[in-house]
Simulated scan of single mutants.
Amino acid sequence: MVNLILVSHSEKLAQGLKELLGEMAPGVAIHLAAGLADGSLGTDISRIEAAFEAVTDDSLLITDLGSATMNAELALELYSGNHTITFCDVPFLEGAFVAAVQSRMGQNLDEIILALQSEFQ
């Protein structure tokens, strides 16, 4: 199954979304890079890189706001792992939901991206 990587400024927001997706699409691996080490709001490229290292298959990367996207894109430029990680600029909650359900249904990365583009662009 395609993994999801969620990059958010808020750890609580990301954890809540992961919980919801776990109910709607059980079995889909969801990796979080959210908040800062001290619990405050923000994004940290080292957390994004750690999420990249944790993926077990091709992955879709979704971010919540502008600087999360900038940090995620930088982390993608630095990534040299074995899996394909693709950023998709879609609404955070809705995009993650569609992607998780599509992954659960056995869709591959390209099929999920097409579904997201069809839904949100």
Rank of each mutant, 00 (worst) to 15 (best):
L65P: 03
L4D: 14
G106I: 02
T43Y: 10
G39R: 04
G106Q: 06
V55K: 13
F92C: 02
S118L: 09
A34W: 05
V55H: 10
I113A: 05
V98D: 13
E19D: 13
K18P: 03
R47T: 09
G22F: 01
L109A: 07
R104W: 11
G106S: 00
A72H: 07
L17H: 03
S59L: 04
G27D: 07
S10D: 04
L41H: 08
E53I: 08
I112V: 15
S67Y: 06
H83M: 14
M105D: 05
Q102P: 07
A51M: 02
M1I: 12
G22V: 11
R104M: 11
I48T: 00
L93K: 01
L114T: 04
S10K: 06
S10P: 05
L21N: 10
T86L: 13
A14D: 05
G22N: 09
F52N: 09
G39M: 11
I5M: 01
H9A: 04
E11W: 09
G42E: 06
H83G: 09
L74I: 15
A14S: 11
E77A: 14
E53H: 11
E119A: 10
N108Y: 01
V98Y: 12
D89T: 04
D58T: 06
Q107V: 05
G81D: 14
A29R: 09
L17N: 00
G95H: 01
G27W: 14
D64H: 02
G16A: 01
A34I: 13
L36Q: 07
L21S: 06
H83I: 04
L78S: 06
T43G: 02
P91H: 00
G95C: 02
T84F: 11
L76G: 02
S118H: 15
F92R: 00
D44T: 05
A99T: 13
L32D: 14
L114E: 05
E49M: 10
T86Y: 14
G16L: 00
P91D: 01
M70W: 07
I5N: 08
T86W: 08
M1T: 14
M24V: 13
P26M: 13
A100G: 14
L78E: 05
L61M: 12
F52S: 08
L60D: 09
L6T: 08
Q121K: 14
L20E: 07
A100L: 12
G81P: 11
A29E: 15
F92S: 01
N71G: 04
D57G: 14
G27F: 15
G106M: 02
Q102C: 13
I112H: 01
L13T: 03
N108S: 11
D38R: 10
F97M: 14
E11A: 10
V7E: 07
E23R: 11
T86K: 15
A50G: 00
G16Y: 01
A51W: 04
F52Y: 02
I85F: 10
D64W: 05
A37W: 10
L6P: 09
V101C: 05
L76I: 02
G39F: 10
K18H: 07
F52G: 09
S59W: 06
R47V: 07
S59F: 03
L65H: 00
A100K: 08
L17W: 01
V55A: 08
L74V: 11
L36N: 12
Q107M: 14
T86E: 15
N108Q: 06
F92I: 03
D44E: 09
A100M: 12
I113L: 11
A68C: 02
L32Y: 09
Y79E: 02
H9Q: 05
